[in-house]
Nucleic acid binder design. Structure first.
Ligand SMILES: [Mn+2]
Ligand SMILES: [Mn+2]
Ligand SMILES: [Zn+2]
Ligand SMILES: [Zn+2]
Lengths: 159, 159
DNA sequence: TGTCAAATGATAATGATTATCAAATTAAAA
DNA sequence: TTTTAATTTGATAATCATTATCATTTGACA
């Protein structure tokens, strides 16, 4: 955790940005919720618990900055808000998502899986890939397994 | 074209919706701009040319309805607006997109390409796929081919 | 300690989308 | 054809996420 923050600090400083207390508090929230997909508002609420003076604009600015530095990825699942997803350190590709239409859960796929597809796109479309977004919509294993009557909703659902 | 509209009409009627003149005008605009990725506002402007009395709210409602019927897919490329993309008739999967970071052009990939990946996701994650969204971000063939000095921007760029 | 750019927080502004509601249209019933 | 009831529409207000503004604070450094 501390090492992770330290590396982000160095990354900021390498572009002559400072790791202010507000920025650090925001990064800590992101690290502590690595598996979630928080909106700016979500992050704001969580940071406030530890750093009540922080302003919403600062959270937006910090998330914007972290996106620029590729510390986080900004993603949109189609419910009118942007969500921010911490990148795996050293991962050269953004991970994929499984969005459940039943319970709203968002699960992650860290494996690449797209190697062959990207090779085809690069050569056949002559398109030089820098990044990608892959999201599957469907029924998650929890909703799938459970027989229809009275299966509870996941707590990980959006909105 | 007329046949295509006729089939959409039937699809609407099968759910007891009417193909009103406003809806037909909207569908025509979508068909005439099949390769583009229009925002609601874009559609509104274009429909107004043929049907000036139409209201913006009606366009939004029509696009919403067509999304429900899976005539169009709603997609978000990360510039604060939703875009509406006519589905290929009979295609069981939404097509993929290539977004150029240089000129903003959005190209389409109609081929599936994801067959193997989906098989893996279905079995290994026990996730029942209903739909997907795949977008590559990178440098398109036009910007790639052209040597850096003075290559013009595509007309297909967003915003 | 004094200086200056960077960063912050409060708040106003913007812009896309949605909600509201009275009027118009439509299809079916009488 | 008239009546009726439900659907659809257009104008406009409301909402909500995000961005812009600006006065104040902070931090690094001379
Ligand atoms: Mn994720
Ligand atoms: Mn498309
Ligand atoms: Zn589920
Ligand atoms: Zn390009």
């Amino acid at each position: 955790m501390e090492q992770r923050i330290d590396r982000i600090k160095k990354q900021l400083q390498s572009q002559s940005y400072k790791l202010t207390p507000q920025r650090e508090a925001t990064v800590r929230v992101l690290l502590e919720h690595e598996d979630d997909h928080l909106s700016a508002e979500d992050v704001y609420m969580l940071v406030k618990e530890k750093y009540p003076e922080i302003g919403l604009a600062t959270v937006y600015r910090t998330l914007e900055l972290l996106t620029e530095l590729k510390v986080v990825d900004k993603i949109n699942f189609g419910d009118g808000v942007s969500r921010y997803d911490l990148r795996q350190e050293g991962a050269d590709h953004f991970h994929h998502h499984l969005v459940c239409l039943e319970c709203g859960a968002v699960d992650e796929i860290q494996e690449d899986l797209l190697g062959d597809v990207e090779k085809i796109v690069e050569t056949r479309w002559n398109f030089h890939i820098k990044d990608h977004r892959l999201t599957f919509h469907g029924i998650c294993h929890r909703c799938h397994d459970t027989s229809s009557p009275g299966h509870e909703k996941s707590e990980v659902h959006q909105k």
